[in-house]
Amino acid sequence: MEVTTGLNIVIAEDDTDDANIIIKSFNRHKAFKKVTRVKNGQELVNYLKDNKSDLPDIVLTDINMPIKNGVEALSDIFHDSALCKIPVFVYSSTISPMYERKCKELGCKACLIKPFSIAEFDDIPNQIVYKLK
C-alpha cells in the first residue's frame, strides 16, 4: 500500500480558535510535513503568488472570511494558470447548496463541514488524504 508523506498544506482560516485546532490536527497527522496558516482569502492568494517556486501540495480554505472569502479566493486560484493545479478543499460551519455548486464549478476537490468535536477535526487530514488519491 502506498503511503503518502511529506505533504505541504496551506490553511486559510480567520478564526484563531478554529485555526489552533486544525493546525494541531494536521501537525499530528503523519502525512503532513509543513502546515502554514493564512488569515483570509486575500492572504491566501498573495501567499500562493509569492511562492510559485514552492507551491503547497494542498490548500484548505474556510468560506466566510473578511476582505476576500474562500469562494472568491477559489475563483482567483482557478483562473490563474500557475495555481489552478493545486488541489483545493473548502471547509465551513455550513455550506449552502448554492455555495457547494459554485465551489465545484471552480474546481474544488471537496466541501467539508467543520465538525463539532476536536476528535472529528483530527479526521479532516484523513479525509483530505483519502480524496487526494
Binding site: 480558535d17 466566510n64 467543520k114 463539532f116 468535536s117 477535526f121
Partner: peptide, 10 residues
C-alpha cells in the same frame, strides 16, 4: 451556527 459549533466543540 459558528459560535454554537465552537461551544459544543470545546
Amino acid at each position: 451556527k459558528e459560535p454554537i459549533r465552537k461551544i459544543v466543540t470545546y
